[in-house]
Amino acid sequence: MSTGPAKGMNALKRMLWDENPVIGQILGICSALAVTNLVKNTLVMCLGLIFTLMMSCLTVSLLRNVIPRRVRMIVQVLVIAAYVIFIKIVLDAYLPEISNELGPYVGLIITNCIVMGRTEGYAMGNKPVDAVLDGIGAGIGYSLVLLPIAMIREPLGLGTFFGIQVLPSDWTRWNMMVIAPSGFFALATFIWVVRAFKTSGAKR
């Protein structure tokens, strides 16, 4: 790993694999557990997070030289919350059904540690272009973990994929897969497998 913060496209790429926020830093776990029982909800959640990360990182990076050190965290939360409320309002207006299904989880993007982590850890000290790429990268990195988990949980738990029946109707549903505990198992197994793969690659 090179010294100093990654710049340009590197800021984006490293978030997908090397420094993936979920696999590497175990951040954003609560939402990963909560929404991954339906692929559609997961997709909306991921898009919401990518948007929030991108906009928050941009705003915080633009303001980085004028934000007083003492209140920087308060300002970051303010910025993040404003964008998340924006998403919630837009979803309510244009995708009311999905908004209804996601319930409180859209609002909980505010407390997703990835967003705060990227704004405090990267956007506060880097140029807007790099910060935006870093934010988008972290969002995509998060999606790369959530979507596969959702794609496993939804068919096994409900027999559907994206709301469409894919398994035969006499399929015995694994109720376990839809409720939160299976999120723990699925996520932990996923991280375990990916990390084992990563370390074996590093040794070689």
């Binding site: 300002v75 303010l78 919350a81 404003a82």
Partner: peptide, 14 residues
């Protein structure tokens, strides 16, 4: 002043 100003901006936006 900064905190008040930025809060006002975002409140106005939202």
């Amino acid at each position: 002043l900064f905190t008040l100003a930025i809060t006002a901006v975002f409140v106005f936006m939202v």
